[in-house]
Design a protein around this nucleic acid. Sequence first.
DNA 1: ATTTCAATAAGGATTTTACCTATTTTTTTA
DNA 2: TAAAAAAATAGGTAAAATCCTTATTGAAAT
Lengths: 217, 217
Amino acid sequence: MSGNQKIYNLVIVDDHLLFAGSLEGLINSFPNFKVLFHAKNGVDFQNKLKIQKHIPDVILLDINMPVMNGFETMQYLTLNHPSIKVLALSMDDDEKVILKMLRFGAKGYLLKDIHPDNLKLALEEVMLKGYFHSDKVSTTLLNALNEAKGEKIKLKENELKFLQLACTEMTYKEIADVMSLSPKTIDGYRQELFNRLNIKNRVGLVIYALKNEFVKI
Amino acid sequence: MSGNQKIYNLVIVDDHLLFAGSLEGLINSFPNFKVLFHAKNGVDFQNKLKIQKHIPDVILLDINMPVMNGFETMQYLTLNHPSIKVLALSMDDDEKVILKMLRFGAKGYLLKDIHPDNLKLALEEVMLKGYFHSDKVSTTLLNALNEAKGEKIKLKENELKFLQLACTEMTYKEIADVMSLSPKTIDGYRQELFNRLNIKNRVGLVIYALKNEFVKI
DNA sequence: ATTTCAATAAGGATTTTACCTATTTTTTTA
DNA sequence: TAAAAAAATAGGTAAAATCCTTATTGAAAT
């Protein structure tokens, strides 16, 4: 609760100076993030890293760069600095590109049109949970992401039951009755699944359950 | 077409011994159904199921029983044997009761005054199509269950758009924005569809839309 | 010209969902 | 068996969904 949280060092790798520069200002305004430097490509990054005494905790890595692009840089980072969390930055949500970055070890990705307010949340989340993805993405992609990262979402027994019942027209209260649990426990399952599956409301649960064949209709 | 069709195992749960017993005889005379046993309530059913080597394919479940009634038994079945098709049995066509059973996962319902000849058809249909309902029911209910008769409800253009958007994670307010209509108009569509389709909440909309292929996932 | 109907939208109340945080209980495991 | 982790439960609040009724408007029908 108090003021002195850990401060995470961050590096921006992006060839658009204006973007990188303004982003630096924004991020430095976040209380627990500090921009160490920004680089215009992978080579530039390596050089600047040498003359730094700090290793960054997290890197915002643009994918489209002319010299040493996002993929190459990602490979270098995975090999040489596997503990640095990398968030891929992309203009659009091209599935192939994003999946490739994740296979290369990125912890997540951000679309460049993310709202400044949300960037702070995104950064905090990636440090806290280890991954983050812009939510402007299809469920299909999210599922693909989970597979790409080898993080198959496993449902606990009660979560599965809850999910199945959530695909009926029962209210949560009725579901709680059926499962002989407190409505608050059910609410806990709901919250947990919403977070894990990156969904927004009960419709998302239904869609997820159907896509993954946890229920049939 | 030929003689050796699959034989479905059936269980009758009803507290009226005479009824259950004679029903058993009738059903055993159907070539592709075999009564495993009958039970006088949900508890009795659970006990008898334990000493059975077969899991039933379909259960005829009376709603009005003194000990563990139809709802409670339905809840137990939905939770523990979701693959068993349940046909609710009722004396009358009390809408609320029937709809509640359907919401709890019953595949359909039969009125007890169904003609013996039709019971055979009903059972065959529920195994084949996955659902069945007695046709001696109120108009409202018939509308709700229109698909049993292959009568697809026609949607007006805006209703269809609304329905499709309701299958996303948008809020109704967001849907209203997208459709450039007042949230109150959207609420009107919602109400109209809920009444016409006899559904209870947004999950019902999603299920309906998917079943009738108004949306794809 | 009046009636009818469909589409739109309002007010206003209640219930259900959703979110955040914290505590207790149970289970696991070191 | 004590400590840690996971599961269940709870309180409080905000937002969204649901329900019921009524009103306006313009087009279509008789």
